[in-house]
Design a protein around this nucleic acid. Structure first.
Lengths: 120, 120
DNA sequence: GCGTAAGGTATCTTTTTGGATACTAGGTTT
DNA sequence: AAACCTAGTATCCAAAAAGATACCTTACGC
């Protein structure tokens, strides 16, 4: 029963405030160094960037290439395996866009974008 | 740039430890009462179930029908709007299944299922 | 006149996530 | 010889999410 519901597995590799944007950067720009990612995502801390990259690496979503030199150089890129999930990400993105539109129709322009749905 | 990345919007309505399973239940069983959901998901607390249902309701994913009677009766069901996201959920689920398989090939049977990837 | 049923709320505590800040290594530049 | 560069760690702290527990309503059967 719960066996059939592996949506969570897909979610697992995407959750975390930064994973989607990191993937987006790497999908768009190809190979990027650690510092380039930092510049592209100004609000992320080194700690978060490192941990998110490590998790994505574990899941074989990104590849980490270390150049043994000083100062250090490390390049990150999307793996072949992860390339195959591009259509899924695209589908999720498309649905996201449509859903924002839908929320807009339901509640008006104001409540859109962030939060507002968390009636806690 | 970040405008193009609305994957997060899709994630937003799915995050929370329980939303996917709740949706799975309602997709599978059609209309369900609060207590039926509780029975189907034995480990969720009333508080969590309520809050997750409320968020899903806000996003027009589920519909809440209240019968004015005592003891109370409330029925939950997937909305027409949310029906349209079934293919997306299916795609995410399929990817999840394939990904578990992939992790298995990479790391062996033991490390599978939960956690293990969060090198924190 | 008491317990039960159903669908919740209200508080409080714990766990999980995320963030700020400081520090490291070792070659290169000033 | 001090300062800088990169790609990180280490430690500590704040915020958010999740969980435990107790309580509410009010018609009905006993």
């Amino acid at each position: 029963m719960a066996d059939n519901c592996k949506v969570e597995t897909a979610l697992e590799i995407l959750v975390g405030k930064w994973k989607p944007v990191i993937m987006y950067q790497l999908f768009s720009n190809g190979t990027m160094r650690f510092s380039e990612l930092q510049r592209a995502l100004p609000d992320i801390t080194k700690k978060m960037l490192t941990s998110q990259l490590r998790e994505l690496e574990y899941h074989d979503i990104i590849h980490r290439k270390i150049y043994m030199q000083i100062p250090p150089k490390v390049e990150y890129s999307i793996t072949e395996y992860a390339m195959k999930m591009a259509p899924l990400l695209q589908a999720m993105n498309d649905w996201g866009v449509a859903h924002l539109q839908h929320l807009n129709e339901l509640y008006g322009e104001d409540s859109g974008e962030e939060a507002a749905g968390t009636t806690k």
